[in-house]
Amino acid sequence: MDGLVLLANSAAQADPTSIFEPASPPAESIRTLAILVFVIALFIFFVVEFILFYSIWRFRRRKQAGGADQAGGDPTAEPPQVYGSKPIEVAWTAAPALIVFVLVLVAARTLWEVKPDVPTPSPGDNALYVTAIGHQWWWEFHYTSYNGEPLDFITANELHVPVGDDGTPRPVYLTLLSADVIHSFWVPRLAGKLDLIPGVTNTLWFQTTEPGLYLGQCAEYCGTQHAGMLLRVYVDTPDDFETWLANQRKPAVDDPAVAEGKAAFLSESCINCHRVRGTPAAGTYAPDLTHLMSRETLASGLVPNDRENLRKWINNPHDIKEGCLMPAFGLSPEKLDLIVDYLATLK
């Protein structure tokens, strides 16, 4: 239910991924820097373009009947030749150098603000630690610690984090890894982007005091469905977050009403890639399905997660996400329905 409200919120937000709508300290620092630089750039722009257009207008060759042009002399005569001037050159070397100096200082300050040292988890730190692993073309989130308490569950594509307030900031530290090629984690309203590189460990920090849904997507070209590698960050109230955590930590729902569906699921090759905790399905190549129905979207944010889309997806994922790595298995409609029935219970 909460989710629906959030979905509505995101629709109401005109520019849900604008870098000028920051909601987290790193993004705010960068916006401050951006505005300052824009002001400086606009100033330079107007000064130089003014000189340029003024020169063109003032010194253009005027072909008048009288023959006298602005220099007051013979229109065929050459204007005075000025070869250069050392003081002037020094002056316009110094001016940009000064601007560069100022820019370096503000850039350094901003850099240290947005890239602080990353603390290690400790009890009572209110900090959430998640390992985000980029896959072609989805996100794996491995929750490792919250408020100093170790966590160990995996979800996909939708990151849930707690909202902080002025008294208790709740920082989020994402350890970024990649399972295949380079991806980039970019939720513009929360922080600048940072790459997920195979063989490299990066850490991204953000924290916010505004609950809501924050959108983003992969920002480093990573193959066919780079455009379909969307990203959703849900900033929940602390209570909602605790509820969500408690649910995620549980193994999968085992509803006897869909035992037949579960059997069908486990008999197919689904289990080679997908995991459902508490069942023999233990694949790690594809999104964890333990709490599939707690997610609002399918296919890494491309379509709402409802029965119809789920069925369409399993029938042929390429109808929704052309070129994705999950093949169409050619299941019979009956089996398809059984499996969808089962998956729909994984709340």
């Binding site: 630089v37 750039a41 330079i44 503000v106 850039a107």
Partner: peptide
């Protein structure tokens, strides 16, 4: 003249991209 008027703008956006933190937002966009 087109070059002067345009390249100036490209140069100024280049300065923005050179500022590492700003580039965290703008890179690959």
């Amino acid at each position: 003249m087109g070059f002067l008027a345009m390249f100036l703008i490209g140069g100024l956006t280049g300065i923005m991209l050179a500022l590492a933190p700003f580039d965290f937002q703008l890179s690959d966009s």
